[in-house]
Design a protein around this nucleic acid. Sequence first.
DNA 1: GGTTATTATTTTTTT
DNA 2: AATAATAACC
Length: 683
Amino acid sequence: MISLSGLNDKQREAAETVEGPVLILAGAGSGKTRTLTYRIANMVDNLGLPSDQILGVSFTNKAAKEMRERVITLLGSRKARKIALLTFHSLGVRILKKEIDKLGYHLNFSIYDQSDQISIVREALKHYHADKKFDTKDVQSKISFLKNAGITEDDYADSHHFNPEDPYSHATEYAYRYYQEKLKFFNAIDFDDILFLTLKLFRNNPDVAKAYSEKYQYIMIDEYQDTNTLQFELVRHLTVTHNNLCVVGDDDQSIYGFRGADITNILEFEKTFPGAKVVKLEENYRSVSSILDLANHVIKENKKRRDKTLWSQKKSDHIPLLWAMANMEHEAEVIVEEVVRHQGNGGHLGDIAILYRSNTQAPPIEDQLRLSQVPYTIIGGQKFYDKKEVKDLMSYLFVILNPNDQMAIRRILNIPHRGIGNVTLEKYLAKSAEDNIPLFEALEKYPGIDPQRSAGIVKFVELIRKYKQVFKTYPLAQSISTLIEEIDYLNFIDKQYDNAKQVERRRKDVMYFIESSERFTNYYKENADLKTFCERLLLQDSQDKEELNDGEDHDVRKNEVTLMTLHSSKGLEFDTVFLVGVEEETLPHKKTITQGEDISEERRLCYVGITRAQARLIMTYCKQRKLFGKDMPRFKSRFLNELKNKDLYREQDRTTFGHLTEEEATDYKKSFFSNLLGSLDEE
DNA sequence: GGTTATTATTTTTTT
DNA sequence: AATAATAACC
């Protein structure tokens, strides 16, 4: 039996209401994850509901992982195993893998990431002759936005997003059609399609939707304020047979507007799901009151929000700090120094998070941590599969799996060099269009378009054919190693780069790729297929692969500092939080300032960051920052400047010793110089 | 077709 | 500063 006595009345009410629609309005730190995990534990352990009928959906891998870990802590891994705790996208792939043939795709579809998307859009815009130049990335993100709003390429021209006066709209319409056509032809889907097509599937096949709704009898959605139209519709289909839906959210923490998050989903929940029970969680258990005060005042500046003020019983003499730094390097130095001090005082590194607006802020801090030999882990950032080598190798896997995948073929056709360059490729692309056959078939059918290149073409086709068989007969990891050997990829890297350090790094990535396939194969045994492996690499961030080891230390946070973006930090908490780069044009981000006036989402982001901290909050900003190789003056963020009460935080100028007493300053200088001397000794 | 030099461009945020 | 796209070479 799981006891619910550790929950407060409201939390307990939410955890015990298992049937019917439930809306939990949960302020930051009000124990929302705790409530959800106890709710799940209650269902399984106390009510005896079958665990494979429970589905919990979150937005980020990090959040899904956290949820799983906490459920395991309550139930143990045996009982928790069958509970589906997924992101929206992994749920979508799980469904499409079995059902996508009903939409006219083959089951062996490839998944395209943003860089694939951009190349196709670039191609589309090339075909779209116009005197104006269009920004490829802009058009791509517009298409992505439209998909997330549930608008198809045919609906676009009639929607209110289409502006007949605007050349961009016309270009986007053309590109959208071109793009969708190509993807289908390549038997590929993009990240947005994972949800888009799942919804289409449900719409076209109500019986399939019904079956999944029956499979998942109890559904919970975390961070409901961030659901977009697509996700909302999916949820509706999934709950059609039972209406057992529990959603949790907080309008102040809506930070996915750029992905089409629709706040009315949460505001009108009771309308959509009549008879919903609404539970409000307002007591904050996370932060000390001084941190909460600051957060409340920052978010109060947002005009459009449901008024609420979180309160906390936790008192402390800590006042949030704001440190002014000279530049990025200095920022990194001072922060790491503080981290080291914390460690020296016997503090646990897992209690510390360093949060930033964008991933580009991480490298200097990372460098400094490494230099000081402080263990750390970075969540998100550059994806493992984003690395050139990994993409190349994955492209091989995708082609072997799905020969229609043109983007992947084009990527590897001449890697390693087979003497097939752009000119030859264009010839084959023309043939492929002419005969209306996939590129790969064109390669098979016309090996002799250019007699000089013929040998290379045949070799490539043979290679793919051969490995289709190899992957069928031998275990995954073994097949991958043989493939890499056969194409002599490591040698190719050697030849490509003359910088020894680069070669080393890239070879390491390849080795890591092989290792990760071995781990995967060991874990899934004979079920380790090519497709699942690729999906895992694409959908999961690199650190999640560690999960394959099935470690037992799920409830113990590692002794590492955590670095991540504000977006990834949502739903998490840390004893000490460094919120770095609280400056104009970083938070709020420049892009929001220049292109749109709505700064409120940036303010919510700031709010999210502040409310991650339990006991200690240290914000920083730089007086100067290098941008595109140039030093630019920087200023404190308006989110702090606009506060009338200046006692909410304490500002300290770390570029001088002014914030220290004379004694402290002497100590500081002494240790600074001895460090300097120490590092000189090493040289 | 491949390599190198020059020029343009870049930074949200997640899956 | 770093990287990618383009142009100009071999």
